[in-house]
Write a protein that binds this DNA or RNA. Structure first.
Length: 461
DNA sequence: TTAGGGTTAG
């Protein structure tokens, strides 16, 4: 960097935009010029927006709070409400609803006027966290801020659907129209999605008719996707095809979601060739497959034990700039284990970070269960330790099975190691203790068994 | 980025 050219307010914005690493971006923000400045650096609102959203996306909340405190002291400009919507959303995704609420309450001290937009963002946080009581409580309090809009009611509908209260969800339409808010295509989409999810297809289709007849709102691709998935789950593939034809007739674009649903539905009922036909048709019609579509096809080849084809698809995704995600890998990992290709699976798992994809809780569970089923308990213990260290938890049934196997195999060393690991994750239950103690007593060498129990207890303390 | 669909498995 040329020291003769100090970084200006404007240039900091451009540099922040380019810096992908949030830590480096923060460094740059805090110290734009290495030389001690003659006068304090003047930040732009854009720089604040960029650094705060970068830190929020990276879940670097302490650092983000620090910048927010600094922003609060700026008097030359007032931040936009949209920035606070973003931050509230970041806290929601991190399952920190109380902090989101606190920030919402503090907005006026940033000289930001709260409207129904930030209120809806907050409502969405409690929806994400499945705190439906709190949603209801917030909804009752909205009058203080303004009028609930369609988005507010749509969030409420999702809350009811998520808690299985479909009839209450349906009643929201009446409530909103009574208050002069018109239901929109998202309102009907949410309801149809809920009905389809609970296999109440008749009501879903009735709503699709009524939304047009009564409200003059027309179904879009989102709604067709829910319906197609619903009828596929029911095994009615001909109806799924008819819905697709109806979309073409109504000039609704067949997007990748529609194709993913159809291909997946066809494959699940054993119509593999037809599924591959739709996959070809999709490409012929110029609809670009995305990560989800590729995942559906990868799943198809994996279930067919054609791992070479699955790997080829992973490469094709990278070539086409459509990055494989954790599901792409989990699909392959699961099938590799099912086929007993545990070494190959482990290699792929270990290669994931290099390929730019961090394993998630599902990946770890696949490995842990896979090694247990293959009686590779040492490897299972190793994965267990790694996953618990990362804050992921195995299924309780898997832990039980694992401990049971170690007991049956009288594998005292691994058992001690496993208890140690499980304790770190606070996962040792009474059942597991009972199993270990029973094993100790069953052993004819009673004295050494007491030693085992003692050492298990010692390790805990 | 105020709200919605489709893929793993459970």
């Amino acid at each position: 960097m040329n020291p003769a050219r100090p970084i200006t307010t404007f240039r900091l914005g451009s540099l922040l935009r380019l810096q992908k690493d949030p830590k480096l971006a923060l460094q740059l923000f805090k110290n734009p010029n290495p030389e001690p400045p003659l006068k304090p650096f003047r930040y732009s609102l854009l720089s604040y927006d960029l650094i705060i959203t970068k830190l929020g996306r990276a879940k670097m909340f302490n650092e983000m709070q620090e910048i927010l405190s600094q922003l609060k002291e700026e008097t030359l400009f007032t931040p936009k409400e949209a920035l606070f919507c973003d931050i509230i959303n970041f806290y929601g995704r991190a399952h920190l609803p109380e902090i989101a609420l606190k920030l919402f309450d503090e907005m006026p001290s940033f000289r930001v006027q709260r409207t129904v937009k930030s209120y809806n963002s907050l409502l969405n946080v409690f929806l994400m966290c499945k705190d439906f009581d709190k949603m209801r409580e917030l909804f009752v309090g909205i009058e203080k801020l303004g009028k609930a809009d369609a988005c507010t009611y749509n969030l409420l509908i999702r809350g009811f659907c998520a808690s299985g209260r479909l009839d209450d969800a349906f009643k929201v339409i009446g409530e909103m129209t009574n208050r002069g808010v018109s239901p929109n295509v998202i309102t009907f989409g949410n309801l149809i999605y809920g009905f389809c999810l609970h296999s109440r297809l008749k009501e879903a289709f009735k709503l699709k008719t009524d939304m047009v007849k009564i409200y003059r709102v027309y179904p879009n691709a989102y709604i067709y996707a829910s319906l197609i998935k619903g009828v596929c789950k029911n095994g009615d593939l001909s109806l799924a095809y008819r819905l697709k034809e109806e979309m073409i007739r109504n000039k609704i674009e067949l997007d990748s979601a529609i194709y993913s649903t159809l291909i997946s539905g066809l494959f699940k009922v054993g119509r593999k060739e037809e599924a591959l036909g739709v996959w070809e048709d999709m490409k012929v019609r110029g609809c670009k497959p995305d990560t989800v579509t590729y995942n559906v096809i990868i799943n198809l080849f994996c279930k067919d034990k054609d791992f070479e084809a699955a790997y080829r698809l992973l490469d094709e995704m990278v070539e086409k700039g459509c990055e494989p995600d954790v599901i792409s890998y989990n699909v392959i990992l699961r099938e590799l284990f099912k086929e007993g290709k545990r070494d190959e699976a482990n290699d792929l798992f270990e290669d994931m970070p290099r390929r730019g994809c961090a394993p998630d809780v599902v990946s770890y569970r696949i490995l842990f269960d896979g090694f247990c089923n293959g009686m590779q308990f040492k490897e299972a213990a190793f994965i267990l330790d790694e996953m618990i260290f990362k804050g992921f938890v195995p299924c309780s049934a898997s832990i039980c099975k694992f401990v049971n196997s170690l007991c049956e195999g009288k594998n005292a060393d691994l058992l001690r190691l496993a208890f140690n690991t499980l304790e770190k994750g606070k996962l040792v239950t009474v059942d597991l203790w009972t199993m270990a103690v029973a094993m100790a007593y069953k052993d004819d060498k009673l004295s050494s068994s007491f030693n085992l129990v003692d050492s298990l207890i010692d390790d805990m303390n």
